[in-house]
Structure formats: structure tokens, C-alpha cells
Design a protein around this nucleic acid. Structure first.
Lengths: 134, 134
DNA sequence: TATTAAATTGTAATAATTACAAACTTGTAA
DNA sequence: TTACAAGTTTGTAATTATTACAATTTAATA
């Protein structure tokens, strides 16, 4: 099986290398389009017919806890998942619904009022209309 | 009835001044703690016993469409509402669950990859541990 | 290869949100 | 001030996303 680097990431964190987990991670690595649980489940089910949606939820939860994957909550109706954990922003087009990545320099953002707050996670998202829909 | 300025905002946008809408707006103005639908519903129901949760949803939807209120989606399990539509960031404490406002200068954030994107809405939120919980 | 702990599965339960039609209000104009 | 049309509220039912849980299966290790 491929994706030795992903396996190493799991081993490093003492996460068992189950077939389902590897397939979900592989899927996220190959589909960096911020898929929903339903998209992940539906697509992987083609190669693992017995796959349960609960497993997708469990796996994503674990991957997020371990910092291998990030959740994107832009709409209240859907959580999306992103294997790219570098600082970057998300742009959601209100017309076509697509989510685009854009690069940001988080350190450039001037903030006030966070003295003595311990920050683990920083999210930036914009909404509007993408060039294709304009 | 008080809150003449809120009434004016509604009139300006041709939104009918129903009692429920005024009460919901008044509540949001007096409770800038980013309440959930359930909190809004439960609290206002004390003064309007016949209030329906559907009305709260309908009203919030309309207020958001008209730009009088913003939705905050930090957790996938709950949408929160904010009458403060100035640029500002939200910090969610992962221990106590409270959401804190902090000030940001959006123009200071260096972004790339958004040429020809029309931006309507910009959101910034951080997660971590607040000073009290540290 | 046997053992033990952990993961997967499927179903049922929960929670948030939306759809919808009947009853009720609001704004407007006579 | 009243009457009408358009818009709003209400309550219930439906939908959707997510979680709980127990039985079965699988992975890691000795």
C-alpha cells in the first residue's frame, strides 16, 4: 500500500493503521477540495462497500484531535475537512458554493484584546463571489 | 416602545416592524454574548409565551440577509448570532466555551490568491484557552 | 498464532433546521 | 377609522447531521 508518509504520521501518534483510516487519509490527501463527511463516505464506499458512516465520523474526529486534519465550519449546515494544516484562508463563493484556498500571513494581522489568551488555532474565511461566477 | 434606532434600521430596509422582530433585535442589542437560537428563543419566550422557534429562525435569517446581524459558525453544532457587524474577531475558549470579541484591523492582513474575487464578508476566529481557564 | 485492546459496523437516538398550511398582523389607502 | 392585500407567526411534521451503543471484527504484539 502507498502513502508511507501518512502511515508514519499515524504511527508517530500511536493511531492504529486500520484499512479504513488509511483510506480516509489517502482520500483527504488526494481530494484537497474540502469534502464533507457525506462526500468522503460516498466516494470511499465505492472501494469499501461495508464502510459505515460512523467510522468516517470517528476517524475524522480522531484525526482532528491529533492535529492531522482541520475542520472548516463556514456554513452551519456542513462541516468540511482539510488535510492542509498550514495557515491559509478559505473563500466560499456564495453562488457556486466552491471553497477556494488563499494564502495568508497570519502574523501580519493586527489584533488587540488577546493578552493572556493561549491560541491553538487560527481560522480566516471570506465569503463573496468567485471570478468564474462574476 | 424603545429602540427607535433599530426600528429605523428595519424601516430603511422595508422589513415589517412586527413585535417578534423588534423583541429579537432588542434582545440581540442587549445580549452581545453571541447567543444561540435556543438561548434567544428560551429567553424571549418568557415575555412572549406564544413565540415559535420557527419565528426566531425566520427572523434571524432575514436579519442576516439584510446585513443587520452576522452568523458565527465556530462549532458545527451551533450557530451563534452577533448584532455587532463591525470587523472584529472571535475567540472561543475550548475549556469554558465562552466566546470573546477581540479587535482586528482587517486591512493589515496580507492575503494572496484573491485577485478578481468579490469579497462581501470576512471572518476571523481563534480557538484556545482564555485567561480565566489558564 | 493466540491474546487483548481497539476499531468497525449498523441501528437507534438526538439535535438542529426547514417545510408548510392555517391563523393572525401589519401597512396602506380609501 | 376601517378594510384589504400582503406579509408574518405559529405548530406540527419532515429532514438532515451527528452521536450513542453493543455486537462483531480487526490490528498489534508477544
Amino acid at each position: 500500500m502507498m502513502f508511507e508518509s501518512l502511515k508514519k504520521e499515524l504511527k508517530k501518534r500511536n493511531i492504529n493503521l486500520s484499512y479504513q483510516r488509511l483510506k480516509i487519509l489517502e482520500y483527504l490527501a488526494q481530494n484537497q477540495c474540502h469534502p464533507t463527511v457525506d462526500q468522503i463516505y460516498t466516494d470511499i464506499q465505492k472501494s469499501i462497500p461495508t464502510l459505515s458512516k460512523t467510522t468516517v465520523y470517528n476517524t475524522l474526529k480522531k484525526l482532528v484531535e491529533e492535529g492531522l486534519v482541520r475542520v472548516i465550519n463556514i456554513e452551519d449546515t456542513e462541516s468540511r475537512y482539510d488535510i492542509n494544516i498550514e495557515d491559509h484562508g478559505h473563500f466560499k463563493c456564495e453562488n457556486c458554493g466552491n471553497i477556494f484556498d488563499f494564502s495568508i500571513n497570519m502574523d501580519s494581522l493586527v489584533c488587540n484584546g488577546l493578552d493572556n489568551f493561549r491560541i491553538f488555532d487560527r481560522h480566516v474565511y471570506f465569503k463573496g463571489i468567485c471570478p468564474q461566477c462574476s
